[in-house]
């Protein structure tokens, strides 16, 4: 269980004023749930993820994972980045095994485990290739396998499919849904796509900028259906899905009392 209590992050702006990137945000991420944070640029969703990952200190508040305070990056939180961060000098399988290498696990054992994960993301045939011979979507799958390899308590995904074309993106969403259904990991997923948020989230939190805070929370259950059928079509045309989508769109485009985004 990840618990965020009154988390605030304040940066000094170039003109000397303070930027409230994150303003008293409280959020729980329960086991077996995918929480998706959606919002326009600058709403603090990436700041939230970076704070949970331990890349960024909180100005106020606290984040705990299973009761332990988070103050630095660690192997208990697996991160999938938007930009691929694979090591070009290591083969795909060694990239996936990197976290296990850091944990001091022997080469044979960690490669075996990495191959299992590559099988999970459908890339076992590419195990011995260097990452630069893979396409963008494949590299993100390797990134997902790498984050899963250390068996983290939570997966943090920072717009991982944002740079992919829409067809690859759909395949990746399917993959994530089925991986989640099989592993039952708790996931925090950041996106600026409302449809992606509703397709993947068991909970969708809508964030608004200046100051970055959560303005609404929705329960959504479409990801279970998606994981089972692998077909996004019926979900996208589900009346309940469309209703939620429009509600969130209205929220993002007209944040309460704080002026408009445009």
């Amino acid at each position: 269980m990840l618990q965020i209590r009154d988390a605030s992050v304040t940066f000094p702006a170039s003109d000397g004023s303070a930027v409230h990137a994150l303003d008293h945000v409280s959020l729980d991420i329960a086991p077996d749930s995918i929480v998706v944070a959606v919002g326009a640029s600058g709403c603090g969703k990436s700041t939230l993820l970076n704070a949970i990952a331990g890349f960024l200190p909180l100005t106020e508040g606290s984040i705990t994972l299973d009761g332990e305070e988070i103050d630095r990056p660690g192997g208990d939180r697996g991160v999938v980045f938007q930009k691929d961060t694979l090591l070009p000098w290591a083969s795909v399988v060694d990239n996936v095994a990197l976290g296990l290498k850091f944990a001091g696990i022997s080469r044979t054992v960690r490669r075996e485990r990495a191959r299992e994960l590559l099988d999970l993301v459908g890339l076992v045939d590419f195990a011995d290739k260097p990452p630069y011979e893979l396409s963008g979507g494949m590299r993100q799958r390797v990134g997902l396998a790498r984050a899963l390899a250390t068996d983290p308590k939570i997966l943090l995904m920072d717009e991982p499919f944002g740079a992919l074309d829409s067809l690859t993106r759909e395949t990746m969403q399917q993959l994530l849904a089925s991986v989640w259904a099989r592993t039952g990991k708790q996931v925090l997923f950041i996106t600026h796509s409302i449809e992606e948020a509703l397709t993947l989230g068991t909970t969708v939190v809508v964030m608004s900028p200046r100051p970055g805070r959560i303005v609404a929370r929705f329960k959504a259950g479409f990801v279970r259906e998606f994981a089972e059928t692998g077909d996004i079509g019926p979900i996208l045309s589900n009346p309940h899905f469309i209703e939620l989508r429009e509600e969130i769109r209205a929220l993002i485009h007209r944040p309460a009392g704080k002026g408009t985004l445009q």
Binding site: A53, G54, F55, R72, P73, G74, G75, R77, G78, V79, F81, K83, T85, L87, W89, L98, G99, K101, F102, A103, R146, A147, T150, L156
Partner: peptide
């Protein structure tokens, strides 16, 4: 060295020495 690469290694549990030998040096 890209900061994302360093962050990725840290979130995979790298110690400072491992970060140097496995990420920064190469």
């Amino acid at each position: 060295v890209p900061v994302e690469r360093i962050n990725a290694a840290l979130s995979l549990g790298a110690t400072r020495l491992q970060l140097f030998t496995n990420i920064i040096l190469p």
